[in-house]
């Protein structure tokens, strides 16, 4: 998929308008996974907006986001960065084809370190 189409697709899928961002950085200031993430929530917004999405697709950051929605809650402009993170993540998953997770697969994947929230959101998006 070309750069422009990917940008449009992510924007459509997430329902986020990255133009609303005023670049205050409150999302990244509040993000509990900040240190784990190579690209921080405000960068997701900016990079999607400028179409610089390739680095995001290949970054670990997609899986470091806890989907805690702190950034969504705190953003003064209602940008909802976490929804963008999720939309980019979906692009990767959809690209990989049909390897959907089913509820039956989840018990095998459980371990001590996996946060509950991750499971819930993984379940939600993989079963769609």
């Amino acid at each position: 998929m070309n750069k422009k189409n990917l940008r449009e697709e992510i924007i459509l899928r997430s329902g986020v308008n990255p133009k609303k961002c005023m670049k205050c950085g409150k999302c990244s200031a509040t993000c509990p996974a900040y240190d784990e993430m190579e690209y921080h929530p405000h960068q997701f917004v900016n990079m999607v907006d400028t179409g610089d999405i390739e680095p995001l697709l290949n970054s670990d950051s997609l899986y470091k986001c806890l989907t805690c929605f702190a950034c969504v809650d705190r953003c003064p402009r209602g940008v909802e960065p976490a929804k963008l993170v999720e939309a980019v993540r979906l692009s990767v998953i959809r690209k990989q084809g049909e390897n959907h997770l089913t509820p039956n697969d989840i018990p095998a994947l459980l371990d001590e370190d996996t946060p509950q929230q991750l499971l819930v959101s993984a379940f939600r998006k993989y079963t769609k």
């Binding site: 950085g25 409150k26 999302c27 990244s28 200031a29 509040t30 993000c31 705190r74």
Partner: peptide, 8 residues
């Protein structure tokens, strides 16, 4: 002066 917001 630091460009950025306080989160919490």
């Amino acid at each position: 002066y630091i460009k950025g917001m306080v989160g919490k």
